[in-house]
């Protein structure tokens, strides 16, 4: 699973940077096209829910999603790498 911030919804309040127990968010540094500084990830691989939701079969933690006033944080399936066939030419 992968955590994403929906830039069309985020209003840049930075509450996620406060509530995440693993501190995977930090204040952003660039304005997006709506003029909002969207938080950035800081080591998102520490997110327990990303790693373990599938294993446990239920939502773990989820503080950032519950707190986000703008419903901008969600988890999506990570895209699998496509199997590639390597053709070796002699």
């Amino acid at each position: 699973m992968k955590l994403i911030i929906d830039e069309s919804r985020c209003k840049g309040c930075n509450l996620c940077t406060l509530v995440c127990p693993y501190k995977i968010f930090r204040e952003g540094s660039r304005l997006n096209e709506k003029g909002i500084v969207v938080p950035e990830f800081n080591g998102p691989e520490r997110c327990t829910n990303c790693r373990l939701q599938k294993l446990y079969g239920r939502r773990l933690c989820g503080m950032c999603q519950l707190t986000c006033p703008d419903q901008a944080i969600k988890w999506v399936e990570e895209e699998r790498f496509e199997d590639m066939k390597v053709v070796i030419e002699y």
């Binding site: 209003k11 309040c13 930075n14 999603q65 986000c68 006033p69 419903q71």
Partner: peptide, 10 residues
């Protein structure tokens, strides 16, 4: 921005 109402809604 930062309004708590969205959180309560969640």
């Amino acid at each position: 921005t930062g309004c708590g109402n969205g959180t309560v809604l969640n």
